[in-house]
Amino acid sequence: MWYKLTLPLVICFGVGVLAFVQEFVPHPWSAAFREEMTTWFRIMGGFGLFIGAYSLLHLHVTRIRRQQAGWGYSAFVFLGAALTIGAGVFEEVRAAVADVPAGAFSLFDWLYNYVQVPCQATIFSILAFFMASAAFRAFRARNVEAALLLAAALVVMFGRVPISEEVGRCLGSWDLFPKAADVLMEYPNMAAKRGIMLGISLGAISQSLRVLFGIERSYLGGGG
């Protein structure tokens, strides 16, 4: 049906062309149009954030309903969410009906500071152990390329920590190793990153054009 597929693609093309053209039009109407559209997308973005939350809850509901492996743990997701949302809603209502003194206890902030923050920080810090173990077991100079990678990693790892300056002082130049790391980062690393960036940008422009002309439609999703 035309309103399910064709019309959205026409809208995409039309808005895309307008967005492209307004970049080159210095008239105040162009700036006003851009401000209006960006305000619209800011408001719509707020709704979009709820979709992620719903999807996650739906996943755990399904797991409990079908009693899949580990379904009991999903109850803790709901426990955590219920506690936090309950605390947040309570504070919204409290702030609406009464003056809350500054520094008053907030269960909502407490859950964030003492449950979310430590868990989230710790989960990512575990990677330090895995990196050390993986580097020991898998990082081998099997050929010239791997040796280059290894050498660059060692130069950077050593050059960026204070002990390298102490070692450099003993060798007569405190900035020997930091300078080596700097040169590596500012020349070969920078060149490669720039090449990658240019390649990705050209790809992004090509992909944007494919989206505008309706060749790329995967973002539309299902639903006929």
Partner: peptide
């Protein structure tokens, strides 16, 4: 924290270098 960073980096460097010396 940079002091701990120094020691840990040296450890990882030694592990990598040691493993590669053994491999080579």
């Amino acid at each position: 924290g940079m002091q701990a960073q120094s020691l840990t980096h040296v450890l990882i460097i030694l592990l990598i270098v040691g493993a590669n010396v053994h491999y080579l």
